[in-house]
C-alpha cells in the first residue's frame, strides 16, 4: 500500500484550499477511508458516496483539527458517521435468541485476512456495523451505542453474535 502519512505542511496547504494538496491527501488516504466505508456498508455505491462526502467535509473542516497527528483517526470518525447515516435503514438489531446460536465447537481451521474480510461483509448489517466499530476500529461500546442509537448491552450482544457467525462463515468458506 503506497501510503504517505500527511504531515503538518501538507495539512496547512489543504487548509488554505490548495487543490494539489487536497488531491495529495486524498490519494494517500482514500484506501483507508473507502475500505472502512465499504466494510461497514458492503455496498460499493454507498461506500463511494460516503467517500465523497467524507473528503468534502475533511477539506472544509480541517482547520478545526487541533492535533495534526490525529488526522487519520479524525477522518475515520467522519467516515463512520457518514457510513452510519448512509446505512441507517439497513441496520437492524433483532432480539437475539440464544437457542438459535450455533454450537460453540472447537475451531480447527486456519484463515487469513482475505477470508476474514469476506466473512465480515457477509454478516447481517447491524451486527457487521457493531463489529466494525468495536472490534476493528476500537470504539468503546458506549461510543458505538451512541453512534448507532442502541443500548450498550445491545452493542455487546451484537459483537458476541457477530463473532459466532464469523466462526461459522469462515469454516463454511474454507469448505468451499
Amino acid at each position: 500500500m503506497n501510503q504517505i502519512l500527511p504531515n503538518s505542511e501538507l495539512i496547512e496547504r489543504v487548509i488554505s484550499q490548495e487543490r494539489k494538496a487536497q488531491f495529495q491527501l486524498f490519494e494517500s488516504t482514500k484506501r483507508i477511508v473507502y475500505s472502512l466505508a465499504y466494510r461497514i456498508l458492503n455496498d460499493e455505491d454507498l461506500a463511494h458516496d460516503v467517500l465523497q462526502d467524507t473528503y468534502v467535509e475533511v477539506f472544509q473542516q480541517l482547520r478545526s483539527l487541533k492535533q495534526p497527528e490525529a488526522l487519520i483517526a479524525w477522518m475515520k470518525t467522519i467516515t463512520v458517521r457518514k457510513a452510519i447515516k448512509a446505512g441507517k435503514k439497513l441496520f437492524e438489531f433483532d432480539h437475539l435468541d440464544q437457542s438459535q446460536d450455533p454450537p460453540d465447537n472447537q475451531f480447527d481451521s486456519w484463515f487469513d485476512g482475505e477470508l476474514l474480510d469476506q466473512a465480515i461483509r457477509s454478516l447481517p448489517p447491524g451486527a457487521r456495523a457493531v463489529f466494525m466499530l468495536t472490534t476493528v476500529e476500537g470504539f468503546s461500546h458506549k461510543e458505538t451505542a451512541q453512534l448507532l442509537g442502541i443500548s450498550e448491552s445491545t452493542s455487546k450482544s451484537q459483537v458476541t453474535y457477530a463473532k459466532k457467525l464469523l466462526r461459522n462463515r469462515i469454516q463454511t468458506l474454507l469448505r468451499i
Binding site: 484506501r31 473507502y34 465499504y38 487469513d112 485476512g113 477470508l115 465480515i120
Partner: peptide, 8 residues
C-alpha cells in the same frame, strides 16, 4: 488477521 484486512 484484523491487522491484515485487505485494502479496497
Amino acid at each position: 488477521n484484523l491487522k491484515k484486512l485487505p485494502v479496497h
